[in-house]
Design a protein around this nucleic acid. Structure first.
Lengths: 225, 225
DNA sequence: GTGCAATGTTACCATATTGTTATTTATGTT
DNA sequence: AACATAAATAACAATATGGTAACATTGCAC
């Protein structure tokens, strides 16, 4: 994921903080969105789906802890990384913050270098947590949800077709021999007729596109980008 | 619960304190009730049933500690959150206060920001005791009370159905394999017949809505928003 | 170009998998 | 004990998937 595609929601009631932190993050190439209180933060989080939220603890309307709790309870937002901004020495707010589901702390006064490197570390963690899906050109295969999308369009495939596509797409360009396909998709104990693979390839060609699957006569099939 | 519905009973014999603290809390949107001594405090607590009581320790008529003890002994009041107001350095009153059943301390001199965020934290604790819920679209799952609500309508589910729904709804879109469901909902030592999961899914489809549960043949089920 | 093995295509059907309902068994409550 | 509720099972129905057969087409070897 490119830095340009990373959105950070920055929430603080003090315009000075928004400006200095926002400046440093923008400078690093991130997209920065701001909010001035918890209510606004939750609203913008839902709308923008940022990867990271930096939340001030003390704010009018709704404080950071409350906002954090609301976000953690929302199934669509709950995996967003959240860091609190807190004045040094406010011990109790740290405890309450971790209870509420914070991932990290940034203490004021803010040192730009520290801020940026913490943000990087947090985003790295987010990336690792990202879901188990793989991208091949404009094809995205999502094993968790057993569905694929092609140029943004979702397509639901039956199991065998899904497995076959997964296999071929796992190494674009590589020719998979019929034996190999049978072994990996059907399991080598199972005996199926000679046309079975072809029929499945046919169905995939219908759904994904004819030119994505190349036949290598006498050998097998390959997926091409 | 809306802030407007939250009542805070503020008890102190010094009108200055009542005024400054009361002002800050009202400003945050809370309903503030006041009392000037312990006797009056107990009386008003019974009548108004506030969510939070802020009690000065040193007062004429009946001090805060005694009032606290009386409140804790009353079955209708005993779950109210109580915070003591105490001058910094009055160590002994803190010990006595916790013995009497205090939930937290606020030290004088009072800093409005600290006050407000402590109050919020205390009320949050109260709220959390009341409910621990999770939101997925217009479905709210309340683990503590073992009930859910759909578009505001409450639905009570039997345990297994509740657990199954909780599991599926914890990651909307993700396909849970039958094994995984058995493991997480039934416990993998238990052996149940082949149609058990289906029957429970059926019941959920009846109660929650058919289209919320998608079958992925040969794999499992998923919850969709 | 001809022959031939390999692959493509289509329609159809068997079957594994899931859906449904009724009934039995378990669990807890008054 | 009687009752209510929940959970599991059994027995049968419905269904998508996966496989097959039968035939068409391709493309390589000669």
């Amino acid at each position: 994921m490119n830095k340009k595609d990373i959105k950070i929601l920055l929430v603080d009631d003090e315009p000075d903080i928004l400006e200095i932190v926002g400046y440093n993050l923008s400078n690093e190439g991130y997209q920065v969105i701001t909010a001035e209180n918890g209510v606004e933060a939750v609203k913008k989080a839902k709308k923008e789906l940022p990867q990271l939220i930096i939340l001030d603890v003390m704010m009018p309307e709704m404080d950071g802890i409350e906002a954090c709790e609301i976000i953690r309870k929302n199934s669509k937002l709950k995996d967003i990384v959240i860091a609190f901004l807190t004045a040094r020495g406010e011990d109790y707010s740290q405890v309450a913050g971790f209870d509420a589901g914070a991932d990290d702390y940034i203490t004021k006064p803010i040192k730009p270098k520290v801020l940026v490197s913490k943000v990087k570390a947090l985003l790295r963690r987010f990336k690792d947590d990202a879901k188990d899906s793989m991208k091949i050109g404009d094809l995205v295969i999502n094993r968790d949800e057993y569905k694929i999308s092609l140029k943004g369009k979702e397509i639901i495939l039956p199991r065998k077709e899904f497995e076959l596509l997964s296999l071929l797409a796992s190494k674009p360009g590589k020719v998979f021999k019929r034996d190999e396909i049978l072994d990996k998709v059907w399991g080598n104990e199972v005996v199926v007729g000679g046309r079975t693979i072809d029929v499945h390839i046919r169905k995939l060609r219908e759904k994904i596109g004819d030119k994505s699957f190349k036949t290598v006569k006498g050998v097998g099939y390959k997926f091409v980008d």
